[in-house]
Amino acid sequence: MKEEIAGHQSIIKYQNNEFTTVDDMIATEFPLTLYVNREEFATIVCSPTHLQELVLGFLASEGVIRRRADIQDIHLDDSKGFCHITLTKELTHNTAHYSKRMISSCCGKSREFYFVSDAATAKVSMTDKTIKADEIIYMMEQLQQSSTNFKQTGGLHNAAISDGHDFYIHRSDIGRHNALDKLYGYCIEQHIPIRDKVLIFSGRISSEILIKASKIGVGIILSKSAPTDLAIKLAHDLNITAVGFIRNGSFNIYSHPQRIVK
């Protein structure tokens, strides 16, 4: 299957008191079912791009793997929407929590799935990384400029991982957590240390996004939007610097401000 994050769709548009038929770009939604050691593990609804990175990042964030070497074989059949993963070890998770559980692309009750392994896999950041205020503004501007797919569809989340100066990689997905898993998977594949990296994100910093950032291992998360109160509490507990409302040359620091300098 050709990787396409969006496709053309004929729609009816109402504008200036008229109905017209126009061609529009619509975000692609794709279900990918994972089998781990021949056992059905989960189905992720995602954008059909960078799927191997998504699988690696998802399994790592759920504590199934710690490194690329934990996977003996990975076979992606994206024409049918399946990925078969063989580990170098037994699957020790209680699969009753995972089997056939849908991972939704939107915000909702299906996200309770992540609470199964959050306590075991969330990490307290130990980084002493600092970044300058003008670098924060610059990185968010770069993320916005890179988000061509969002501009076309209006239906995608965008994220990037950076050393505080330049992006390592930028990824988009209909699911905000999927975009972060793709970044995590890229770092695993490329053997990039994550501890001193910065996560730049287009959407709201919810508790699930803050937990995902802690699972990845970053100590700083930047967003153009706002955090929730629970996300701020978790950021304090997990020693993560959360910065939001990065817009028009200003931003708010919600936790651990010592990492942000002039």
Rank of each mutant, 00 (worst) to 15 (best):
I74S: 03
I211R: 15
S206A: 11
R38L: 10
N16G: 05
F167L: 04
M126L: 12
S172C: 13
S99F: 08
T92L: 11
Q144N: 13
V36Y: 06
H8Y: 12
A27Q: 07
F245L: 14
T241S: 07
A27H: 01
M1V: 09
A159E: 00
I192G: 01
P31M: 01
C187N: 04
E135Q: 14
R176S: 15
M1E: 10
L87W: 03
L143K: 00
R195P: 00
A69M: 15
K151V: 03
A6P: 01
K2A: 09
V198Q: 00
Y168H: 14
S223V: 05
S105Q: 05
I192L: 09
C187G: 06
E90Y: 08
Y114P: 02
H93P: 09
I103R: 02
I11S: 05
V45N: 14
Q15M: 05
L238M: 03
D173W: 04
R111N: 04
H236D: 15
D237L: 10
A235M: 06
I216A: 01
S214K: 06
D166L: 09
L51I: 09
T88W: 07
I161E: 01
S117K: 11
I246D: 03
R38K: 14
L238V: 02
K132N: 13
N17L: 08
G244S: 09
I174N: 07
V243T: 03
D118C: 05
Y168R: 00
I71A: 07
S117G: 09
D229M: 12
A179V: 02
L222E: 06
D237E: 15
Y254T: 01
I221F: 05
S105T: 03
E4P: 00
I246C: 04
Q9E: 14
Y254W: 10
A96Y: 11
H236L: 10
L32A: 02
I174K: 04
S162F: 03
L91N: 02
Q142C: 12
V55T: 13
K233H: 15
I169A: 14
A122C: 11
D24I: 03
V261S: 04
I11K: 09
A69N: 15
Q258D: 13
V261M: 08
H236C: 02
R195I: 08
T92S: 12
H236M: 11
I174G: 02
L210I: 09
L230R: 15
I188N: 00
F201W: 02
F167Q: 08
K13S: 13
N178S: 15
I169Y: 13
V45R: 13
Y138S: 15
H157Y: 13
E208A: 12
K129M: 09
N17Q: 12
S10H: 10
S250N: 14
K129E: 08
D24G: 04
S117F: 02
I246T: 04
P193L: 07
A179D: 01
T228D: 13
S104G: 11
S147T: 01
I11H: 07
V198S: 00
I74R: 05
T241W: 00
A160N: 00
Q142G: 01
S10Q: 10
S146T: 08
G217M: 05
C46Q: 06
L180F: 04
G249F: 05
N248L: 08
S162T: 11
T43F: 04
F115A: 12
V116W: 12
A6N: 10
S225H: 14
G217S: 03
I216Y: 06
I194T: 05
M139E: 10
D237Q: 14
S105R: 06
I253G: 08
E62A: 07
L32N: 02
K109Y: 06
